[in-house]
């Protein structure tokens, strides 16, 4: 129970709420972290980060929590980088996250196929200047 609670709070600090979207912890992404093959390949990495948190981590304010995490990021860089990778992996495949990005950009949430994108067709007038250049490839005697 405490592990999950800790992970939720850590995730909310790493990828905090934005606009109407909750933080990564509030989105319920903690459960998928342990299923990431990266976490499998480095067993114990997530727990190493959690074990390094101060005992009163949950009681601290956000800025204090960030400072604790920054300290671990420096001192236990390898384990922390695994945490970041699995957190980003979980966050950026979540449809709610991608829909928010779609609302702010031309990026389309969902897989690239089969929808794809529309792009302006190739404009041959772009070649106007370079087309006037004489061939300059290096000639070679037969």
């Amino acid at each position: 129970m405490r592990r999950r609670e800790l992970l939720d709070v850590v995730l909310d600090r790493l990828l905090p709420p934005v606009d109407e979207l909750g933080g990564a912890g509030a989105l319920g992404l903690a459960a998928s972290l342990d299923r990431d093959p990266l976490a499998d390949a480095a067993p114990g990495a997530l727990d190493e980060v959690l074990a390094a948190l101060p005992k009163d981590f949950l009681d601290r304010d956000g800025e204090d929590q960030d400072r604790s995490l920054q300290q671990i990021e420096t001192q236990q860089a390898e384990a922390f980088s695994i945490l970041i990778s699995v957190a980003y992996n979980a966050y950026y495949v979540d449809p709610r996250v991608l829909e928010r990005i779609e609302g702010r950009t031309a990026y389309k949430a969902g897989p690239p196929q089969p929808r794809g994108y529309e792009i302006e067709p190739f404009d041959e007038t772009l070649l106007a200047q370079i087309s006037r250049r004489e061939p300059f490839w290096r000639k070679v005697d037969p």
Binding site: R13, L14, L15, P16, V18, D66, L69, I84, S85, A87, Y88, N89, Y91, Y92, V93, V97, L98, I101, Y107, P112
Partner: peptide, 21 residues
């Protein structure tokens, strides 16, 4: 895409925290 951008496949990773988004 968003994950490749965040994780920094060919560029430095986008840092975690308040400014991430």
């Amino acid at each position: 895409g968003p994950l490749g951008t965040a994780i920094g496949r060919y560029l430095p990773q986008i840092p975690w925290g308040a400014d991430h988004h």
